[in-house]
């Protein structure tokens, strides 16, 4: 599946691993429950590890392993289901997660800017996606009444007015 980053398509080095398949010595995405269950065995691993986090699981669940993760994949089963926005923001703002946050599932270009502002970095998009549409969508509204993403304090209130001052 193509991957979108900074408004353009990029190569996806990650492989998704089935629940019972062995974890290869390559950047691998496994379920969050498996990552937690096999935390000890995975502790010695030197290749990047990523997990999928279902949208009804609070990000706190990942705390025991968060510092070893390079990627968290969030799920939007339907584009109207906005739980991933809160998960992303919690990961960034509260837990200081610095790795990649990827939105996967049904995402539309009109959500791109908001996802970025909540801390998402990449979006898994369908084959044939025209990245220019996404890039335009993230740029069209450049002004926010809340601050732009900043890894230390993404969304404090009313910063537009502070910047103005």
């Amino acid at each position: 599946m193509p991957l979108l980053e900074n408004g353009g398509l990029v190569a996806d080095p990650w492989v998704a691993v089935a629940p019972d398949a062995p974890i290869p010595d390559a950047p691998a995405i496994i379920g969050h429950d498996r990552a937690l269950a096999e935390a000890e065995a995975l502790a010695g691993r030197n290749t990047p590890l990523g997990v999928t986090l279902p949208n009804d699981v609070p990000p706190e669940t990942l705390l025991p392993i968060l510092d070893r993760l390079s990627l968290v994949v969030l799920d939007l089963p339907k584009f109207r289901d906005g739980r991933a926005f809160t998960q992303a923001r919690t990961l960034r703002e509260r837990h200081g997660f610095r790795g990649e946050i990827r939105a996967a599932g049904h995402v539309i270009p009109d959500q791109y800017a908001a996802l970025l502002r909540c801390g998402v970095t990449t979006v898994a998009v369908p084959e044939g996606t025209d990245p220019t549409v996404w890039d335009a969508a993230r740029r069209v509204v450049s002004i926010a009444y809340q601050p732009r993403l900043d890894p230390t304090a993404p969304l404090a209130g009313l910063r537009r007015r502070l910047e103005l001052a």
Binding site: F79, R80, D81, G82, F85, T86, R89, Q111, A113, A114, L115, R117, C118, V141, A144, Y145, Q146, L155
Partner: peptide
């Protein structure tokens, strides 16, 4: 207004 987290 266009709060990024609370639009969906």
């Amino acid at each position: 207004t266009l709060h990024p987290e609370f639009t969906w």
